[in-house]
Computed example of a mutant assay.
Amino acid sequence: MWRHIASNALTFLVVLVFLFGGALIWAKNQYTGQGPLTGAICVKVERGTNFRKVSNDLADQGAVSNGAIFRVGADYAGKTQDLKAGSYLVPEGASMADIVDIVTRGGASTCGTEVVYRIGINRASIQVRELDPATERFVEKAEFVPGVDEVPEDYTRVRSQNDTRYRIALAEGVTSWHVVDGLKAVDVLTGTADAIPAEGSLAPDSYEVRVGDTVASVLDRMQSSQERILSEAWANRVDGLPLQTPDEALILASIIEKETGVAEERRQVASVFVNRLERGMRLQTDPTVIYGITKGEGVLGRGLRQSELRRETPWNTYVIDGLPPTPIANPGKASIEAALDPANTNYVFFVADGTGGHAFAETLAEHNANVAKWRKIEADQGN
Score class of each variant (00 low, 15 high):
Glu130Asn: 14
Val145Lys: 14
Val289Thr: 12
Glu378Val: 13
Val17Glu: 01
Arg305Phe: 15
Arg310Thr: 12
Gln268Cys: 07
Ala253Ser: 02
Thr260Ala: 07
Ala343Lys: 14
Arg228Ile: 14
Ala198Met: 11
Leu183Cys: 13
Leu230Met: 01
Phe360Tyr: 10
Arg47Ala: 15
Arg279Asp: 12
Arg267Met: 05
Met281Val: 00
Asp163Thr: 14
Lys295Met: 05
Tyr291Asp: 00
Arg71Thr: 08
Ala23Leu: 08
Ile255Asn: 01
Ser307Phe: 05
Thr11Leu: 15
Lys84Arg: 12
Val211Ile: 08
Leu83Met: 09
Gly93Trp: 10
Gly301Thr: 09
Glu264Leu: 14
Gly48His: 05
Gly107Met: 01
Ala74Ser: 10
Asp321Ile: 05
His4Glu: 13
Gly78Phe: 08
Leu131Tyr: 09
Val90Ala: 02
Thr313Tyr: 11
Arg310Gly: 10
Lys295Ala: 11
Gly354Asp: 12
Gly280His: 13
Ile121Cys: 10
Asn346Leu: 07
Asp380His: 14
Ala6Ile: 15
Asp213Met: 03
Ala185Ser: 11
Ala253Cys: 04
Thr345Ser: 12
Gln226Ile: 06
Gln161Tyr: 13
Tyr291Arg: 03
Ala270Ile: 06
Gln284Trp: 14
Ile25Glu: 04
His4Pro: 01
Val45Phe: 06
Lys44Trp: 08
Glu92Lys: 12
Glu257Ile: 07
Gln268Ala: 05
Pro242Lys: 09
Gly303Met: 13
Asp181Thr: 13
Tyr207Ile: 06
Val319Tyr: 03
Leu37Lys: 04
Tyr117Pro: 09
Glu259Pro: 10
Ala235Glu: 08
Ser109His: 03
Gly200Tyr: 08
Gln306Pro: 09
Thr285Glu: 06
Glu366Cys: 10
Trp234Leu: 06
Asn162His: 09
Asp247Cys: 08
Ala6Trp: 14
Cys111Val: 05
His367Val: 09
Asn330Ile: 01
Ala68Ile: 15
Asp75Phe: 14
Ala195Lys: 14
Ala85Gly: 13
Ala233Lys: 11
Thr313Ala: 03
Val148Met: 10
Glu312Leu: 01
Val128Gln: 03
Ala361Asn: 04
Glu199Thr: 05
Phe12Trp: 11
Lys376Val: 07
Ala203Ser: 10
Ser87Val: 04
Leu189Ser: 06
Thr192Asn: 07
Thr313Pro: 08
Leu24Arg: 15
Met1Ile: 10
Val211Met: 06
Gly354Asn: 02
Gly48Ile: 00
Arg221Val: 02
Glu199Cys: 09
Gly322Arg: 03
Asn344Leu: 15
Ser7Lys: 15
